[in-house]
């Protein structure tokens, strides 16, 4: 049976790959022939900064415990207290963690330099860390498995190419990237169905993710008027307009409310 499966599998894969794989190829070509805009450098002397915080009001939702008993290797990593879902994390200072803040529009048409250092996404205790990351399009993401268990990494993009790969216990790190801007790409592990993270892919370097203090800083902006968006996995995204002059610093706050 296995042999029949294998043969039929190969035949159908060959047939199907003909139609299935065309899309990314032509997409790659499209990208290659796109008119190259002048590479931009960040003009530090005149650059503006936008900082702010993501405030949270209303009743702080209680997050549910995650039951890792299906995989003892995961449960052991949390022998103290069971881990909680990270869907909504409200910081002690009343701010919201894991909010992706980015410049949605208003930037001049330029090619911003892509950092050569990758952003790390770690699997530890069968949770992703950090829960939300931001990268530039074509910037590498280094995926690390620190767990003594198998993971599969399965991003669910709508614009970029979807993929699904396994990573054995303490296996080699993976370098992955996404070619197009997409806010946000959910990532899941089907071995451990509670694992969930989000990747924001942006064409420029003007983005930030709120941490334990709920603040964000976007530096190096050319003077101009921008729309900033704050994205959270549970609550509706919020947009704010901001105008900054050369060397100016402005503060923008996003008020999120419990739903």
């Amino acid at each position: 049976m296995k042999k029949i499966y294998i043969c039929l599998g190969i035949v159908s894969i060959l047939t199907f790959s003909g139609c299935g794989k065309k899309e990314p190829e032509s997409a790659a070509k499209e990208e290659a022939t796109a008119p190259a805009t002048a590479p931009a450098t960040i003009d530090d002397a005149n650059a503006a900064t936008v900082t702010g915080k993501v405030a949270f009001s209303g009743d702080k939702p209680t997050m549910r415990n995650i039951d890792m008993s299906a995989n003892p290797a995961c449960a052991r990593a949390h022998s103290g207290a069971p881990p909680k879902s990270e869907e909504v994390v409200v910081n002690d200072n009343g701010t919201l963690k894991n909010v992706f803040v980015w410049v949605k529009s208003g930037l001049p048409e330029r090619q911003w330099p892509v950092p050569s250092t990758p952003v790390e996404l770690t699997q530890k205790g069968c949770m992703y860390g950090p829960h939300v990351i931001g990268v530039m399009a074509n910037q590498n993401i280094k995926i690390v498995n620190n767990d003594p268990t198998n993971h599969n990494i399965h991003p669910l993009p709508k614009i970029n190419q979807e993929w699904n790969e396994s990573q054995p216990p303490k296996g080699e790190d993976k370098l992955k990237r996404f070619a197009r801007e997409e806010v946000m790409i959910p990532v899941k592990c089907n071995v451990h169905p509670w694992m969930r993270s989000y990747i924001g892919v942006v064409n420029h370097p003007f983005f930030a993710v709120t941490g334990d203090d709920g603040t964000f800083t976007i530096k190096g902006l050319p003077p101009g008027t921008y729309t900033l968006e704050a994205w959270h996995e549970k609550y509706a995204p919020q947009d704010v307009q901001v105008t900054v002059g050369a060397k100016e610093s402005k503060t923008v706050d996003f008020p999120f409310k419990a739903s």
Binding site: A70, N150, N152, V191
Partner: peptide, 24 residues
């Protein structure tokens, strides 16, 4: 939601018998 917990086929994690953990 275990369908993709084994990304490869016909083998599973390159083996006939992977570690049967989690959704695998």
């Amino acid at each position: 939601d275990a369908g993709l917990s084994v990304p490869d086929w016909p083998l599973s994690y390159g083996k006939l018998m992977p570690t049967m953990e989690g959704n695998i």
